[in-house]
Amino acid sequence: MTAPAFTEDDRHFMRVALSLSKRGLGNVWPNPSVGCVLVSSDGSIVGRGHTQPGGRPHAERVALDMAGDLARGATAYVTLEPCSHFGKSPPCASGLIDAGVTRVVSALTDPDPRVSGRGHTMLTDAGIQVDVGLFADTARKVNEGFLSKVEHGRPFVTLKLASTLDARSATASGESQWITGEAARQEGHRLRATHDAILVGAKTVLADDPTLTCRLAGREHQSPVRVILDRAGDVSLSVQLVQTANTVPTWLVTAEHNFSELSEKFEKTSIKVIAVGCAHGHLDLHDVMRKLSDAGLTRVLVESGGSLAAALVSAGLVGRIVHFVAPSVIGGDGQAMIASLGLERLSDMPRFDRVSVREMGEDIAVTYDNKTD
């Protein structure tokens, strides 16, 4: 099959669609975050949209409603294959057909078994020209969470770390606020706003009593689900995460044998208790991620201590690391950013690709992607 010959105009409009698609990150789970642009035959944008909070309406429907009759004869640039199945709303592929669109440029085929090429086939069968693959790698990056959920049965996990130059996250006494500066902390809140959930361990909750909300001006409503890993049921009813669970969804993940006891403990709160299996005396992190995926989560940001960070890295569950580095030194008696991995050979080291380095005030933010993802 001959690859489509995309024009500079195609590239421009798909870039616009990709930019729109990013607006839904953190707000549309379990759905993908899609962008759509409708362009008339004279090259004018007549409709644009992105997946709305909660996943409905879809990007195509928003763009079609904006365009109205101007959609007839237009080209649709979509960052993911239009859906072909009836859910809470009619298929987007049908909407594009009914609107009289004559061409669809799609970045990716949707791997969801309910779609998986059927949307493109519906469009082709209706006489619409369909060209697939424009900026596919970029589109995959935007929807890496949704794709991970569909293809691997787990959310995409980003591990956020903050440390000194010598990779210390706290002093020997546990003091850590604040190692990094204001700009880095603001970026941390932006990360929260673009993820479906923040995951922490019980030790972090007991030590810091955090709120784990997004505190960016104008984006406070984008605070993600808060997930606590608590194998033994140590988290008390008095911590802020429990006290505020009625305003920000909060889930507690515990061992199966503790489920009944903790369900009773938190029954008068808004905490959702989830049971998972254990392995070697610890929560089975693969089962944790499966259960979070089953609950609809696609993008999880981990803000943890060194032990949980090490466990997730060892389990191969970390897709990305965002490391905020402060220009300071604590020394060898400080707490390690990532606890012991028990490695004896360099060949066993988990490896990541550095993809960006950015200045954050006096600090720097370095982003790494897992080589195996």
Rank of each mutant, 00 (worst) to 15 (best):
I97V: 14
W251P: 00
L64E: 01
R56Q: 11
R231Q: 13
L123S: 04
L123N: 00
S33G: 15
L147C: 07
L123Y: 06
K149E: 04
F146G: 04
G35Q: 07
D363I: 06
G306Y: 09
V366L: 10
V313E: 03
E359F: 02
V242P: 12
H282N: 12
S84W: 03
S173A: 13
G119P: 09
D348V: 04
A93N: 01
A326R: 02
H257S: 12
V235D: 03
V318L: 06
Q52W: 04
D112A: 15
T194I: 11
D137Y: 03
G95H: 07
L134G: 06
P53I: 11
E187A: 14
T204H: 03
S44Y: 08
V227M: 00
D65L: 06
S328E: 10
R299D: 12
Q222K: 15
M337K: 02
L297T: 01
S33I: 10
A245T: 00
V132G: 05
T2M: 10
T244A: 08
H58T: 07
H58E: 12
G95T: 04
V239I: 15
G43V: 13
L341A: 05
E261H: 14
Q177P: 00
G55P: 06
H120A: 13
M360K: 09
F324I: 08
Q177D: 13
V355Y: 08
R320C: 10
A339C: 09
G218Y: 08
V325I: 12
L96Q: 03
F352R: 03
T138K: 02
A197W: 00
K272Y: 06
I338A: 01
D42R: 11
A245Q: 07
L292A: 01
P155K: 00
F86H: 15
G233T: 04
T121H: 07
L25N: 01
R140D: 13
R226P: 00
M360S: 12
G305M: 04
P82E: 04
L134Q: 05
V28C: 13
I321Q: 05
L108H: 03
S169R: 01
V242C: 08
L212D: 11
S173H: 10
L199E: 07
T158H: 06
D196G: 14
Q177C: 10
E220R: 15
M1G: 15
D287G: 05
T250R: 03
C92A: 14
D10K: 12
M337Y: 05
D294A: 14
P111A: 14
A365Y: 02
T2P: 05
